[in-house]
Design a protein around this nucleic acid. Sequence first.
DNA 1: TTCAAAATACCCCAAAAGGGGTATGGTGCA
DNA 2: TGCACCATACCCCTTTTGGGGTATTTTGAA
Lengths: 214, 214
Amino acid sequence: MVSEAKIATILIADDHQLFNDGLRTLLTFEGSPFKVIEQVYSGSDVIPAIHLVNPDLVLLDINLPNRNGLDIARQVASDFPSVQVVIISMYSYRKFVDELKKIGVAGYLLKSASKQELIACLQNVMKGIAYFDATLNGKSATLHQGDDFVKKFKLSSRELEIIVLMKQGLATPEIAIQLFLSEETVKTHRKNIYYKLKIKNLAELIRFVSEQGI
Amino acid sequence: MVSEAKIATILIADDHQLFNDGLRTLLTFEGSPFKVIEQVYSGSDVIPAIHLVNPDLVLLDINLPNRNGLDIARQVASDFPSVQVVIISMYSYRKFVDELKKIGVAGYLLKSASKQELIACLQNVMKGIAYFDATLNGKSATLHQGDDFVKKFKLSSRELEIIVLMKQGLATPEIAIQLFLSEETVKTHRKNIYYKLKIKNLAELIRFVSEQGI
DNA sequence: TTCAAAATACCCCAAAAGGGGTATGGTGCA
DNA sequence: TGCACCATACCCCTTTTGGGGTATTTTGAA
């Protein structure tokens, strides 16, 4: 928590240098309550940078080279509980939202957000108010309420496991071998997945998965 | 071509608002030879915006909603030959580089580039010098030298078209209908694509395409 | 403890995908 | 004027996928 007067120090972790620098420039203006004190471009540089500069807040991308943002968020929460983490990502990783909230992540912004949203998010977070992008709240808040969305899309962990392998380019026989299952079982799971997602072939599954950011 | 004194006007087309705005801020500094005169966030807004503001240069993302950047580049080249196009993308779309050069695109930057590279690229382009990211040149310079890479990956435009439809979740019969082709023709193209990419099924194609960022 | 799922696994069958050919007309380059 | 490549389209064949069932065991929550 930071008083009104104090300027919040920020570490930006994003491998797209132009985006990273652009963010810094966006946050650097006359009277800005923020100061970007460090920028890193690799997942493995985040923790060392926090050690060095001890920022109030980390703006963290999910897709980072060398180390995954989710993983980093976990370590920050356990090793640096006073450092606020705000995820900034291209996608609505809906399936991560609950996990991120559990970890204690303070905010989630999309790269398609506006400068105003960015500022609002950071100001809320520095006041101790969590700020999650509306497109995330809309769909994921309903996940633990028993509505249509649940009935349509709620997949079992086995089904999710198989979806991931299918997306990785494994054919049914290969998945069966990998999971020590009969091909028939994998086929059954695949049928159930298609039924639940209301799709009819692999290509549509890939599309679905991309859209949901699984 | 623009004289040293004139300030180059720029249109930025990128759906990630924070990136788009960040770019504008990066290009806006004391004595900057550039001026961002318009920003759009959707592929379908690019051509109308060019009509309106007639920029010297368009900074164009490849992955735009509603309309593909490659497609837009083609139209800009034919309808507005005086407008320079610089691609700015997350990925090294190596397979597109020859195509982009043929179209007459003046530059290709990665989002992981630095501000210095961005400035250098734009200055070169405004002097009439093409600027393609080094990681593209490294691999694509060999593209017209008849080596293995060419034989493995160089896809025809028809093949690319079919890849895109396959990735969108269309089955062979649907693609055939959409392109007014025989199913057999689509099958032939698909076979040739798989041969060129050394893959053996749709799932692997999807993976390949994701990795290459098409 | 009972009941609903999830996970397992099989049946049958049609459709599509995948892999091997061949062939023909067109286009662009040397 | 070739030659290479592209786009088109067909043949044959096997494997995989997709869609409809049914059935057993395990597991977790009421």
